[in-house]
Amino acid sequence: MHTPASMVMGIVFAPLGLVLVFTAVITPQWREGQARLNIGGPGSFLRGGTKGQGAGARSGSADALLLLRSDGLWESCLQVEHSELKQCWPVFGPYQRDPRVRLVQGLVLASLFLCGIGIVLACVGVRCWTDLPLRRVAASGGMLVVIAGLLSLTGLGVYTHNLRRLGVDPSRGVGNPRFPQLSLNPAGSLYLGWLGSCLQLLGGSALALSFKRPRCPTCPSRQEQAVCPACRSCPEITSKTDVDVYEVSC
């Protein structure tokens, strides 16, 4: 029996979506921003520390550094443009305590867990090494993958909607020169998450179509009797070779 196209599509798209969402979760590029930090002023706290670094760490003008900041769900990074100076650290402070960030963390973790279980069920249900797949098992796995895709899409939507407000501490003040204002924008990991979530929905929906039974051919001599691949009651079908009756395409 040929493996249904919906199962093949689901068993390909669901793991691919899981890999993309997992990659987005562990990388710190959910949002990124740039800030030009003046170091030439009389009150600058970086002026003395940059005298011995040379012009390679400076960007734009001789008295400014362009800082590149990126935040993820569990890690943040800071880098000086055109320089190898880069440091990453676990998220902390207002950003870590923000309830919206914690909500997104819980949603994506639940999505990964459900998607993994759904893929395992789908692999057991497809059973491309046998003649007849377990359609209900494969479809149940597809439903779990669909739920996982919806959870990750919800988390991504919450993060994207509040991207510029996550972890903002009003007590610092916008005009403080020691904390330059960052223009935060969506970054690559966020786009990977969106793509992976859409693939999860596509793959899970395709697997969920496995609930629908295929149409079996009818016996030419007895039109009222349906014939499945394991049927041996029809002489016209049983006379064919085993390869024709039990052909499996994985």
Rank of each mutant, 00 (worst) to 15 (best):
3 T>I: 03
5 A>Q: 06
10 G>F: 02
12 V>P: 02
16 L>C: 11
23 T>R: 09
24 A>D: 10
28 P>L: 07
32 E>K: 07
34 Q>A: 05
35 A>L: 00
35 A>C: 03
46 L>N: 09
48 G>F: 00
49 G>T: 04
50 T>M: 13
51 K>L: 02
56 G>N: 06
58 R>V: 10
58 R>Y: 12
58 R>F: 15
58 R>Q: 14
61 S>H: 12
62 A>P: 03
62 A>Q: 10
68 L>I: 10
69 R>S: 14
71 D>V: 03
74 W>Q: 11
75 E>Q: 12
76 S>D: 05
77 C>M: 01
80 V>Q: 04
80 V>L: 12
81 E>W: 01
82 H>R: 06
85 L>P: 06
86 K>N: 13
92 F>L: 09
95 Y>T: 08
95 Y>M: 07
96 Q>L: 14
97 R>Q: 14
97 R>Y: 07
99 P>H: 11
100 R>P: 13
102 R>M: 14
102 R>P: 00
103 L>V: 08
104 V>H: 05
105 Q>A: 03
106 G>T: 07
107 L>M: 08
108 V>H: 10
109 L>C: 09
111 S>Y: 00
112 L>R: 07
112 L>V: 15
116 G>V: 00
116 G>N: 01
121 L>S: 04
122 A>D: 10
127 R>P: 08
127 R>L: 08
129 W>N: 10
132 L>Q: 10
136 R>W: 12
137 V>E: 07
138 A>G: 13
141 G>S: 06
142 G>S: 03
145 V>I: 08
146 V>R: 01
146 V>K: 00
147 I>Q: 05
148 A>N: 04
150 L>W: 09
152 S>I: 02
154 T>V: 09
155 G>Y: 07
156 L>S: 12
160 T>E: 02
160 T>W: 05
161 H>F: 07
162 N>C: 02
164 R>C: 03
166 L>D: 04
167 G>M: 02
169 D>L: 10
170 P>A: 08
171 S>E: 09
174 V>E: 10
175 G>F: 01
176 N>L: 08
180 P>Q: 03
181 Q>V: 15
182 L>E: 05
183 S>T: 15
183 S>A: 15
185 N>G: 12
187 A>E: 11
187 A>R: 07
192 L>F: 14
194 W>F: 15
194 W>T: 10
194 W>L: 15
195 L>T: 13
195 L>V: 15
196 G>F: 00
197 S>D: 04
199 L>M: 12
200 Q>K: 04
202 L>G: 09
205 S>C: 15
206 A>Y: 02
207 L>Y: 12
208 A>D: 08
208 A>V: 03
209 L>Q: 14
210 S>Q: 09
210 S>P: 04
212 K>G: 08
213 R>N: 09
213 R>Y: 06
213 R>H: 14
215 R>A: 13
215 R>I: 07
217 P>Y: 14
218 T>V: 11
219 C>E: 04
219 C>H: 13
220 P>I: 01
222 R>N: 06
223 Q>T: 13
225 Q>E: 13
227 V>P: 01
228 C>G: 07
230 A>W: 13
231 C>R: 03
231 C>Q: 02
231 C>F: 04
234 C>N: 09
235 P>M: 00
235 P>V: 01
238 T>H: 10
240 K>C: 08
241 T>I: 04
241 T>V: 05
243 V>S: 08
243 V>I: 13
243 V>K: 11
245 V>F: 04
246 Y>C: 06
